[in-house]
């Protein structure tokens, strides 16, 4: 139990750091990847200024793209994320975002509609009641955050691949791109093979209750084969596309594939 409090420390401290990072202008934040004190340490150790920060940044970006390709190559569409018994569920399941819970998007379920765009036969928008009619499954899996901590939770919803089939999506397209209700416009691309993975889910319930605001009401995309930031919450639209449209964290340097 004491261990758990380290794994998921009082969220405030982390949020504070994240908030301050968030407050930095974009350019400064990106320059931080290679710049400043951290590089100084390397320079000291090697005794020469071998790495100028912009070329190091380009090198790191190229390697990250290479790592995307490697991960896509080793991705096995049939490999399932381990599932757990209910007794293994982490309580309380942590709320984690770059904002406070008080600032989390507040979506009115009655007005909300899921917008469907791109390479699909049927572009009709879906109300929450209509989505609730679709067959649902429950799975208990480990959510792994890019920060390193993990927690086990229970998610219930419709397999995304069933929905993609239902709307006549072109599953030869490269990505399903999600947009969220966050006021900064959170978005994230999901590669099609991961989107078609049997455990990838349009989630409407957490622990058998309607998804609470903290976990992404009214709909979250649960992808147990991806890191947490690639599991968008408060989803308002999905677009089936061949274009890489970037993502909120992906654009700031997190590896885009970030598969588990």
């Amino acid at each position: 139990m004491a261990k758990r409090s380290f794994l998921i420390p009082g969220v405030d401290k982390r949020l504070l750091i994240k908030d301050s990072i968030k407050a930095m202008p974009d350019l400064a934040r990106r320059r931080f990847i290679t710049g400043g004190a951290s590089l100084g340490a390397l320079t000291l150790l090697t005794g020469c200024d071998v790495i100028d920060s912009s070329s190091a940044e380009e090198m790191l970006k190229s390697v990250s793209k290479f790592n995307d390709a490697v991960q896509a190559f080793i991705f096995n569409p049939h490999a399932l994320a381990p599932t757990f018994p209910e007794s293994a569920i982490t309580k309380p399941f942590p709320f984690n975002a770059y904002y406070d819970l008080d600032d989390a998007p507040e979506v009115d379920g009655k007005d909300w509609k899921l917008e469907v765009r791109g390479l699909v036969d049927n572009k009709k928008s879906w109300t929450l009641d209509e989505l609730y009619q679709l067959p649902q499954v429950t799975q208990i899996t480990r959510h792994i955050c890019v920060e390193g901590w993990s927690a086990i939770g229970s998610w219930t919803g419709t397999p995304l691949r069933d929905f993609l089939k239902l709307i006549g999506a072109d599953t030869r397209a490269k990505y399903v791109w999600f947009q969220c209700a966050d006021k900064d416009g959170y978005n994230s691309p999901l590669d099609m093979r991961s989107a078609l993975h049997p455990q990838t889910q349009m989630t409407f319930k957490y622990a058998n209750d309607i998804l609470p605001r903290a976990y992404g009401f009214p709909m979250k995309i649960r992808v147990p084969t991806k890191l947490g930031f690639k599991n968008p919450k408060y989803v308002v639209s999905m677009e089936v596309t061949n274009d890489y449209k970037g993502g909120y964290w992906e654009d700031q340097g997190y590896n885009s594939f970030s598969g588990s």
């Binding site: 990072i21 934040r29 320059r31 931080f32 990847i33 290679t34 710049g35 400043g36 004190a37 951290s38 590089l39 100084g40 340490a41 390397l42 090198m59 790191l60 970006k61 390697v63 990250s64 790592n67 890019v146 920060e147 964290w249 700031q252 340097g253 997190y254 590896n255």
Partner: peptide
């Protein structure tokens, strides 16, 4: 201590680590 870490923030650290 932040000064003896590489990458400036989490994403930078991850990029270095996975390179």
């Amino acid at each position: 201590p932040r000064d003896i870490t590489l990458g400036g923030w989490l994403a930078g650290g991850l990029l270095w680590h996975f390179a």
